[in-house]
């Protein structure tokens, strides 16, 4: 047990967990309504879109890649799926299938380009982001979709708690989407053969190739998975916003990428865990929520958010350095 603990204590997740716990306890004491059910529901609902994307971004980062095009992909997926839903009664299943299919197709195109061109993923996906977003703006003329079908804006509402004065709390689309994405990503990375191969490929692509892993197919899977997540996240986002705008998502990709790095995913591939990214998002969410709850002026909140990220990244750097010291060349 102490040995396990020692191993855990060296990981990024450990420091994140401590930082998170400190904030959590501190905020709970300072502002009792931080712990209220409503606040929890609010936080999960508003971070579901980011959370779903961060979990898929983890898979991409573990594989040693990166994807800058997911917001453009999500924009196409939500615009197309809900345009169709406004004309035909396709229901939730139809909307999700269209968004998922568009996401997977565009994601696989990314994977193919990265494989075939042999260029770095960041260049390829910035280019595809630009192409996709350009097409969206041309096709939609920048027009938002303001009215969506009633069944869509009503969403899913499964009551799970009723207060004494009759106020009901519901499980909503955002919670379901986030839970599915986190569970699926955990399963893929930790319980499947493909998941182990992705870690191996991210750690050392040449070694993975020589062992006989099909790097080409793995890349298609990884970027296809990112596309799928973008498709699903886009629907969760449209439901939260109750409208669709072609300009609402692109340009805000860094929120997602920063949360993944904060959660300990390595920029060079091969490492990162779902626990880490959950803690990464939770930390960002709780810091911003907490600053407002504490009544900190908006002019300061960016500063504090920055400080938290610096602390987290500094702990990560220390961690990497120590691993290097213990085992030179392996970090």
């Amino acid at each position: 047990m102490p040995k396990h603990f020692k191993a855990f204590a060296r990981r990024q997740e450990f420091w994140l967990a401590i930082l998170f716990a400190v904030l959590f306890v501190g905020l709970s004491i300072a502002r009792p309504n931080f712990l209220s059910l409503q606040n929890g529901v609010d936080l999960i609902s508003s971070y579901a879109y980011t959370g779903i994307l961060v979990s898929a971004m983890l898979v991409v980062l573990v594989a040693g890649g990166i994807d800058m095009s997911f917001a453009a992909v999500a924009t196409v997926a939500q615009y197309a799926a809900l345009t169709v839903a406004n004309s035909w009664d396709i229901g939730w299943l139809g909307v999700l299938l269209i968004a998922a299919a568009i996401g997977i197709i565009l994601g696989v195109i990314n994977g193919l380009l990265i494989n075939i061109l042999g260029l770095s993923a960041i260049i390829v996906t910035i280019a595809t982001q630009s192409v996709i977003f350009g097409l969206v703006l041309t096709a939609t003329k920048g027009q938002d979709i303001f009215s969506l079908p009633g069944w869509f804006t009503d969403g899913v509402a499964i009551p799970f708690h009723t207060t004494l004065d009759g106020y009901q709390y519901f499980i909503n689309v955002q919670m379901i989407g986030l839970a599915v994405a986190l569970a699926l990503t955990w399963f893929v990375l930790n319980r499947t053969n493909v998941g182990r191969q992705i870690y191996a490929m991210g750690g050392n692509v040449e070694a993975a190739r020589r062992i006989g892993y099909n790097v080409f197919r793995l890349n298609l899977f990884v970027y296809g998975y990112m596309g799928l997540a973008a498709g699903l996240a886009s629907i969760v986002h449209a439901q939260y916003n109750m409208s669709v705008s072609p300009t609402a998502l692109v340009g805000r990709e860094l929120d997602v990428i920063a949360a993944a790095f904060l959660g300990g995913a390595s920029a060079t591939g091969g490492s990162g865990t779902i626990l880490g990214v959950v803690l990464g998002i939770a930390l960002v969410a709780v810091v911003q929520n907490g600053l407002t709850l504490l009544g900190v002026s908006s002019y300061w909140s960016q500063f504090f958010t920055g400080i938290i990220i610096v602390v987290a990244v500094a702990s990560m750097a220390r961690d990497v350095r120590r691993r290097w010291y213990d085992n030179p060349g392996a970090a």
Binding site: R31, D42, N241, M242
Partner: peptide, 19 residues
């Protein structure tokens, strides 16, 4: 800040209502 985006405005509103 946040009034340029629907989702950010919702989030700010949720936080403000709590506080």
């Amino acid at each position: 800040p946040g009034a340029d985006f629907i989702d950010q405005s919702s989030k700010v509103t949720q936080d403000v209502l709590q506080t």
